[in-house]
């Protein structure tokens, strides 16, 4: 089991390397034919990695006899899986494979964290036995994965804009989408993320009523950081709608939001005491 997980980690590492290589080669106009091959390899390695991770999750599910999401290290592997899934869906819809150069490294880091902590985390909490917990977690993870896609588009926007402004020679490498596309897609995924996160939080807010003995605390660090994250994105949507903020400022906000997601999902769990701590 562990061996399979290790292979998955290595596959994600390979995916990351190929994607970053693809981006780096895009800077050079003389590497067009090599780059298209690298892009192809990167894509197929992603598919392969995704299949392995799926297989791993299924096997893990069977062995544990419950869906492997309620342990923190499991959920972060599921997070990586969701990021990959969202990425593959985006590629299917928009053909923007370069997005992988930004989101696949994130997925790799998550899977690496999951791997390193898989031994240390103990049994799941009794609190997580109710079935409502699973949609709560899945919805929030899906929302976060959307934010990570938006973060990828934000970075792509910033790089594309810089290239156009500085008249960079590799402007035509076709790596990056037109500015308005990167901007618009970033916005769409933030909208989607906010909707999913909102529903997930609402589902979660019903949990204390089901679990009568839950020591509920509104000042739980995870609740607060989630609210901050949610607020960043809601404020972003607001100023975009009312003040027409777009482009660079919007891209920076999507990066800020991404950092908030990291703090909420990884930071809080590793440092602070929280009811949401999975241990």
């Amino acid at each position: 089991m562990n061996f399979l997980f290790l292979i998955t980690v290595l596959l994600y590492l390979a995916t990351t390397i190929f994607h970053v290589l693809n981006l780096a080669l895009g800077e050079r106009n003389d590497a067009v034919s090599i780059r298209s091959r690298i892009e192809m390899i990167a894509f197929w390695v992603t598919i392969f990695s995704f299949s392995f991770l799926t297989l791993f999750i299924i096997l893990w599910w069977i062995r544990q006899s419950y869906f492997p999401i309620t342990k923190w290290s499991d959920s972060i592997a599921f997070f990586a899986w969701t990021i990959t899934l969202v990425y593959l869906i985006i590629v299917r819809l928009t053909k923007l494979r370069t997005l992988g150069s930004f989101v696949m490294p994130v997925a790799f880091i998550f899977i690496l964290i999951s791997y390193s902590f898989s031994e240390t985390t103990s049994h799941r909490s009794e609190l997580f036995t109710t079935n409502w917990v699973i949609p709560h977690i899945i919805l929030i993870i899906l929302g976060y994965a959307s934010f990570i896609a938006a973060f990828g588009f934000g970075l792509m926007y910033l790089i594309a804009e810089k290239k156009i402004r500085e008249k960079n020679q590799s402007l035509f490498s076709n790596l990056l989408p037109p500015l308005d596309v990167a901007d618009e897609l970033g916005y769409i995924f933030i909208l989607l993320g906010v909707i999913l996160l909102s529903i997930g939080v609402i589902v979660g807010s019903f949990l204390p009523t089901y679990l009568k003995d839950l020591p509920w605390n509104w000042f739980d660090p995870k609740v607060i950081s989630t609210l901050v994250t949610w607020l960043i994105y809601v404020v972003y949507i607001g100023i975009r709608q009312f003040w027409g903020w777009r482009g660079r400022k919007a891209a920076f906000l999507s990066i800020l939001g991404f950092l908030a997601v990291l703090c909420t999902y990884v930071g809080v769990d590793l440092t602070l005491d929280s009811l949401h701590e999975f241990q």
């Binding site: 156009i164 402007l171 990056l176 989408p177 037109p178 500015l179 308005d180 596309v181």
Partner: peptide, 8 residues
Amino acid sequence: ELAKKIFN
């Protein structure tokens, strides 16, 4: 071509 890098 440049315009197409800005506008879809």
